[in-house]
């Protein structure tokens, strides 16, 4: 999978590309709008991570250019501006998602996977990990062909872990992904703990060969046996 990272802040770009490379993505960096425009004309990418405020102009220009040359790369806007207008305009110009900075890398991975799935595997909406299969379209989970019933939050949690398999998912990242900022932070951890306990039990009871392991106080990690 080839990703174009358009981000002018070198340290930020370094962290993101480091994390993406670990997940076996091929990452190319563009630090200016001009460099990014040149690259999209020459190469094909599976997904573009696009900052809005760039030296040389707004990232939205790149979205317009993509439309003009009929390219359908997945685009996730990553912006520190967190401005509603940018979000609406970006999505109208064909961006697939909008991720305000600062974000958790786990969240970026989940969004990226979701965009890639939509772009690349249209039709096949099944996600398989060991003996566990997730039907994304119908929001159903099967273990060895047998359906297990998860509530809405449990399903969201599982999908988030699957998108971040073998990676540490921090408690706050999970809380923000599942509940947004609706819930109080202190409560959300207890809440998450109880949901994860239930999810673990369901996976274990049904003989799933994936499990959620706690990483000290930091969070959890999904591992396959």
């Amino acid at each position: 999978m080839k990703i174009l990272l358009v981000e002018d802040e070198p340290e930020m770009a370094q962290s993101i590309s480091h994390s993406l490379t670990q997940e076996k993505y091929v990452v190319e960096n563009a630090y200016t709008l001009q460099a990014a425009l040149e690259k999209i004309h020459i190469y094909e990418y599976d997904c573009i991570l696009l900052d809005i405020s760039l030296p040389g102009g707004s990232g939205l220009t790149l979205l317009k250019e993509l439309q003009k040359i009929n390219k359908t790369e997945g685009v996730i806007i990553i912006s520190a501006k967190n401005s509603l207008d940018d979000k609406i305009e970006g999505l109208n110009l064909g961006a697939d998602d909008y991720l305000p900075k600062p974000f958790h890398l786990a969240e970026l991975h989940a969004r990226l996977k979701s965009v890639l799935r939509r772009k690349k595997f249209e039709g096949t909406n099944l996600l398989t990990l060991a003996n566990t299969t997730i039907d994304l379209q119908n929001r159903m989970v099967f273990i060895d062909e047998k359906e297990i019933v998860l509530n809405r939050k449990e399903y969201d949690i599982l999908l988030y872990f699957v998108s971040n398999k073998n990676r540490l998912v921090s408690k706050t990242s999970l809380a923000e992904h599942i509940w947004g900022d609706r819930i109080d932070e202190a409560d959300s951890f207890e809440f998450i703990y109880s949901q994860i306990k239930n999810l673990r039990k369901k996976l274990q009871d049904n003989g799933a060969r994936i499990s959620l392991v706690a990483v000290y106080g930091l969070g959890y990690k999904l591992v396959t046996e």
């Binding site: 802040e9 340290e11 930020m12 520190a80 600062p102 958790h104 921090s170």
Partner: peptide, 26 residues
């Protein structure tokens, strides 16, 4: 925003390296 975002992401990268002791993790 940006420095905080960078710090958080770097810490996350560090946390993923599993050689951390419990004390360090805390």
């Amino acid at each position: 925003q940006t420095p905080v975002a960078i710090s958080l992401n770097k810490l996350e990268l560090l946390a993923e390296k599993s050689e951390l002791t419990e004390e360090q993790a805390m």
